[in-house]
Structure formats: structure tokens, C-alpha cells
Amino acid sequence: MDYLGTEYKRKGSFAYAWAMDESSDERERGVTMTVSVKYFDSKNYHVVLLDSPGHKDFVPNLISGTAQADAAILVVDASIGAFEAGMVGMTGMGQTKEHAQIIRSFGLEHIIVAINKLDSVEYSQGRFDLIKLQLGSFLRSCGFKESGLKWVPLSTMENQNLVEPPSNIRLLSWYNGGCLLDAIDFIPPPSRYISKPLILPICDVISSRTLGQLAVSGKLEAGAIRVGSKVIVMPSGTVATVRTIERNGANCNVARAGDNVCIGLQNIGDDQLTSGGTLCHVDFPVQIASVLELKILVLEISTPILVGFQVEFHVHHAKASARVEKIISLIDQRTGEILKKAPRMLSGKQSAIIIVNLDREVCVEEFATCRALGRVFLRSSGSTIAVGIVNRILEQS
């Protein structure tokens, strides 16, 4: 733990980021780039912590990390100017807003808003209340319910309100709502789809001596997996054998829906494994497709979406270049009622049914069949421009 006291590339505020940002590139830049996984125990849970990047250059990795989460901690910088920059960007969609929209679009209902760096504003209750008012209004507009929001003031640099109640008298004078660790324990346990056929979206393909020559990592979205069992790897369609299972850094014989695991495989080549693929029950392979009908919500954008518009398509851990093939209709976001057929373009905050044509096939399911493989994101020029679901699969293999 000696690294915790080391200055982070002459940036004192990044000193503790070394605990999660382990790669040389991350430490050189002072920016979280990949999804780092750590484990700890609270009173109620064994917590899998997925530290996802917030920098705009690495939002695709944020999407990949959020795909594996049951709940979220949204860390907000309370210092003057920093919060405001996170709310308003070049297109009106700042990074804080984009992150919150992505979190909600993955179906996460519980979010802890950790308002950090309050030491920089003298632990001002006024500053905390202002952030809570402005951000709270946006979160509710995204679909978060008040019961799913928990607001926690803290200062990581001064170790205030993280795992113990605050000791700073300025914070104690107006806050008694529990520390960050307490807030995690108040999140209700998620439901699991253990009785359904196996679905494990592949987050990463790794090489490990302990797991075998080839291994994949990810979260079991449905079903269970056992050492020695056969699985079908999509989109290649190759049948492989489970050699080893590692859960929470330890070997085990069985893993079930909700577990974050590494799976060592045998009888398969490295050219048949890819991030964005899926491990499935041999009798229930997921679909692969390249033409999809989507139901989307357009976010705050500066350039309208037209037919022919090129986008970056994201679904679970898969991404592909795509083209907007057709804009079928504008719809009411709440009722689904058709407001206008075949509109010429889409603007910010509109909901619509569109058809996209991907440049390659991806593992996907209609949202009504499998939510984990049916939530999609469209990005362009480094920003998320729309979120939505797979309404229908139009062409599949």
C-alpha cells in the first residue's frame, strides 16, 4: 500500500487513484481508461467494484462497465466550475449528464450520487443543496425515482464520510445521513435470472496461466455455468469446454447469474473469441444480426440525425459502425403513440423508431426477450447521441 502516499504524476488529487488505475498508461495520463475490478465486503454485501472511466475519450469503456453493474455510484466534483462543466458541454450534454443517461438507459434504478471535493468549498451546505437541486432535476427527467436516489457529501482527500461518519465539524453541522459505505448497504438486492439458459456477454478475452491458455471475463446475465460443461461461443458458433472458473479472484466449480467471472476455455482457438461475443447454453444460442429496428431517445445534440447518418453502435460489450437506414416514425416517449410517420430528421429529446444497418453482425436479442442484449447506444463524434432498445431483429443469421 505504499503507493497510496505517492504523488500521482505531480497531481496530488490523483494520489489515491493508483489503487484502481494500475496500467502505466493510466498512471502516466492521470486518467482512468479501462474498467478496473476490485472486491470488498460491507455489512450486507460482497461488493464487486467496477471502476469505470469518466473521460470523454473512454465512454465506450464506461458503457462496457455499466453493462455489468447492478447499481451505480456517480461521483460529482463539487468544486466551483467543475460541476457546471459536467452539466453543460459543447452540445449541451456535459459528461455528468451523459454518464447519468447511460446509467439509467441500462435499466439501473439505484444510484448513489457521491458529491466529492466538498473540502474545496469549505463543506458548504449551500453548494451541496445547489448540486442536489440541479442534478436531481435532471436525474428525475431520465427516469430515476426519488426512492432510487441517495445523496452523499464527502471529501476523499480528507477521508470524510467514506467508510465512517464525518469528523469535520463543518460537515457534521448539517449532515447526518450516513457515509458512502452505509449508502451501498441500503441498496436492495437485485433479482437474478438463474433459471434461464446461460448468457454471458464477453467483456474481455485474456490469457492466463491459472485459467488456461484462453479465457474470457464478464458477468453472467442468466443461467449458470459449471467446470466441465459445454458452451457455445457466439458469433462463431464454436462449442468449447469450460476448463476453469474464477470468481472474485478465487477458483470455483459453479457460477450463477449475477457473478462476475473469468472462464478458462479449451477446444477453441483465439480467433473464435472476441470481446462482444457471448457464451451460451449449447441448446440456446443467442441471435446474431446486422439489421435492427430500434426504439430510441435522442439526447441533446447539435446536429440533426438524418437518413444515411453514420453512427457508432454499442450493445453490451460489442460495437460496430452503423448507418441509419430509415426513420420510421416519431413516437411519444411515455405512451409509444405514433406522432408522425417518416419524419425527415430527428432532433434532440425526440423519441423515434428507426432502422440501422450494421457493418458486421453482433450478438443481440430483442429487448422483450433479453434486456442485457437488447439495450443499445448510438454515438457520433465522441458523444452519445441516442439511447434505446432493440425493438425487432430484421435480418439474422
Rank of each mutant, 00 (worst) to 15 (best):
D2L: 09
Y3E: 11
K9T: 01
A15E: 10
T34D: 14
S42G: 03
K43A: 11
Y45E: 04
P53I: 00
F58R: 02
N61Q: 11
G65E: 00
T66W: 02
A67K: 05
D70C: 03
I73C: 06
I73H: 03
I73D: 02
L74H: 02
A78R: 02
S79D: 04
G81C: 07
G86I: 00
M90N: 11
M90I: 06
T91V: 09
I102D: 01
E109K: 14
V121H: 00
Y123S: 00
Y123V: 00
Q125N: 08
D129C: 02
L130K: 11
G136C: 08
G136P: 06
L139A: 02
L139Q: 02
S141E: 14
S141A: 12
F144Y: 08
K145C: 10
S147H: 03
L149K: 10
L149V: 10
L149S: 09
V152I: 15
L154T: 03
S155A: 06
M157S: 13
P166S: 10
N168P: 02
I169W: 07
I169M: 12
L172A: 12
S173Y: 05
L180M: 08
L181P: 00
D182H: 14
I187H: 10
S195E: 14
K196N: 12
L198A: 10
D204W: 03
V205I: 04
Q213C: 03
Q213T: 13
A215M: 03
A215W: 06
S217V: 13
S217H: 00
S217G: 12
A224N: 15
V233I: 12
A240V: 07
V254M: 14
A255D: 08
A255M: 08
A257Y: 09
D259V: 12
G269C: 09
L273C: 02
L273F: 03
L279W: 10
V282A: 08
F284T: 06
F284A: 15
F284K: 13
S290G: 03
V291P: 01
L292C: 06
E293C: 07
L297M: 06
L297Y: 00
L306A: 02
F313W: 02
H317P: 00
E325C: 08
I328F: 03
I331R: 09
K341G: 07
L346N: 08
S351Q: 07
I354R: 05
I355C: 12
N357F: 07
N357G: 10
L358P: 04
L358A: 09
D359V: 05
R360W: 01
R371A: 15
R375C: 10
T384P: 02
S397P: 10
